[in-house]
Nucleic acid binder design. Sequence first.
RNA 1: CGGGACGUGGCGCAGUUUGGUAGCGCGCAUCGUUCGGGACGAUGAGGUCGCCGGUUCAAAUCCGGCCGUCCCGACCA
Length: 568
Amino acid sequence: MRWSRAFIPTLRDDPAGAEAVSHRLLVRGGFIRQLMSGSYSMLPAGLRVRNKVRRIIAEEIDAIGGQEFLLPVLHPGEVWQRSGRWDLMGEELFRLQDRRGVDHVLGMTHEEIFTLIATELKSYKQLPQLWYHFQTKLRDEPRPKSGLLRVREFVMKDSYSFDLDAAGQAKQFEAHYGAYSRIFSRMGLETVAVEASSGAMGGTDSVEFMVASPAGEDLVARCSRCDYAANVERARSRIPDVIDGDPYDAPQRFATPGVRTIEALGRFDGGAPAENQIKTLVYLADGDPVLVLLRGDHPLQEQKLTDHLKVRALRPANDDEIYALLGAHAGSLGAVGVTGLRIIADVALQGRTAMTTGANEDDFHLRGVNVGRDIGIEEWVDLREVKAGEGCPNCDGELEVYKAIEVGHIFKLGTEYSEAFGAYVLDESGRARPIVMGSYGIGLGRAVAAIAEVFHDDKGLRWPVAVAPWQVVITLVKSDPEVIAAGERLYAELVVLGVEVLLDDRDERPGVKFNDAELIGIPYRMTLGPRSLAEGNVELVTRADGATSEIALEDVVKHVRGLLDSVF
RNA sequence: CGGGACGUGGCGCAGUUUGGUAGCGCGCAUCGUUCGGGACGAUGAGGUCGCCGGUUCAAAUCCGGCCGUCCCGACCA
């Protein structure tokens, strides 16, 4: 491609308001343009990168037995009603009606439609199956952000596995685990596979592939010693026991004027340190009130609570709702003597005695509370959000916590969808069995953005060769006929070799060309000008490290073959 | 949905407080000089000032409503 004919609209200034580095650089480098909130056009350079990512994914999924499909984006609403997700998905699901007033859905994922096709499987002899497609997903995100990292419309590779039993499903899950590791490593991304919450996908087990990045929206807890890693939505940790004071015969009420916070009660004369307090939170789970108890210094991990309750909408109760339920305001709440309300406690409170908590009367607290004796706790659940520095649950190492981008997510779905749609096969004994499913997703745009988040410097992007829009740029430093001729010869040689080359034949000053090449991040630049030409050389500059060398023109082909060996 | 900010040539911004013929930088076009690290000069093209309504002799500027975008939070495979 000749740069003078290519549409690569680079910009000198950052786009207004853009926060994520990848977003700024992808816009400035002429890879993407925003159409509206959470919706982006791919420009030629951007599409070239995305297609590289797409091909890597397709190769690796094909390698584990995948067959490519293409399913529609427009779905009948009835299908989503049958799976139950018409109600479950809430406002994130785009819905519309056709001219006859029939409900439709814009697909946010394709479990339903693939399962519908899987109803044609009739025998265990047809299993296992692994089906996938690359298709646009639409999600009415409440807040799209960070450029391509969180959007309302994006293309995802989603695959679906179909097996006779859990053992077969586990095998396909493992195969995906391996394929995903290879996919991300081929893109240059270092990923950590973490235990994750399955959220609205349902199912039993799920693993996310995470790329450490300050632009990430997830928090990963990872052991520095063993291989334990989990999304904080799921992560557990080991914490030291607290030695409780002498038990009381019964809780003792005392006045705490003006004390409204855990911290204030810690400082209050006659109060208690945070780890000796019980924090009482009131939540509404699909409208039903729930009391949630944690140690005073422990934050609630809301996703853990959502997962435990298996509800759609969870939110903290507001002041009025709290007062109506407990007769006191936040800051003086407690669960002692409360009946008729669902009470869920974090496991760190198990066996604790001589605790202090609110008395459900403003400006009063209780001390000497024995958790097991004085509170009617029905459910003990791990609800605490782990902190960096706490102990690994699996070894004596320590956890670190860092931000990460979720670039892939694999799920064990079980038989939820196959049962809903009647996807059954007959087994060897002639018995009908629901197909055991898995689903596995990678968002193309998010992967591109994640790579950009990792591979950039103050000059712009530095694509790994495997995903670069072009592998080599030939920069003609002067528009002399000899230079142009030499450049075109070199260009032709490389094209024949199968190299993706951009020939910068623009009538621009060298500085502009160098800066643009660095901004869009082409891995190798060959500079050709009168100076090098006189010596029969080209200058080769590696974008990643700035390394510069002179190469004899006749050796270039051989040299490039060596450089790009890995992608040929 | 709560909080905050913004909307002015393709891009980045000033001008709004105090109403009076719309400006700057980059980019773009033509010519000339330059040109191995974002050149310089000259000339020029390009704007419904987000939209609708109101106030006024007069609105980018004041008032009301709406729309859009971004950031923080809530939310979210």
